[in-house]
Nucleic acid binder design. Structure first.
Length: 111
DNA sequence: CAGGTGACTCTAC
DNA sequence: GGTAGAGCCACCT
């Protein structure tokens, strides 16, 4: 990875998320080389405006959508996830979860 | 330099 | 299993 800015690295990590799968802010931040910067990832997404960026694959540690229910972003994320084969119920995501437990097997361990 | 904010995370009930 | 409150850390004004 090039010596890009932390924001660029976060965006790259999000772009690296496989389709039909989801990841948490902490995971994305850690993958971006910024452990503990989950908040930064959140702000980055809030500032992000790239339609090609799979930001909808980024969820909270609880596997829940970060945006408030009823918001435009919430609906967009929910619909996009469903379109990728991800089940979304009550603002929660069912199926694979990239939490800090069994994510390594789906994300791929370092190496 | 200090204050305020947040698409977060963890622990406890 | 879910909700509620406190904590933490970096970024912005």
């Amino acid at each position: 990875m090039a010596d890009k800015s932390p924001v660029e690295r976060i965006l790259a990590a999000i772009r690296a998320i496989p389709r039909g799968q989801v990841a948490g802010y902490g995971e994305v931040a850690h993958r971006a080389g910024l452990p503990g910067r989950a908040r930064l990832a959140a702000k980055v997404l809030s500032e992000n405006t790239d339609p090609k960026l799979p930001w909808h694959r980024v969820l909270r540690s609880d596997g829940r959508i970060a945006l408030p229910e009823g918001s435009q972003g919430y609906r967009e994320q929910c619909q996009r996830l469903r379109a990728e084969g991800v089940m979304v119920v009550k603002g929660r995501v069912r199926g694979l979860k990239a939490a800090r437990t069994m994510d390594e097997q789906v994300w791929g361990p370092p190496g």
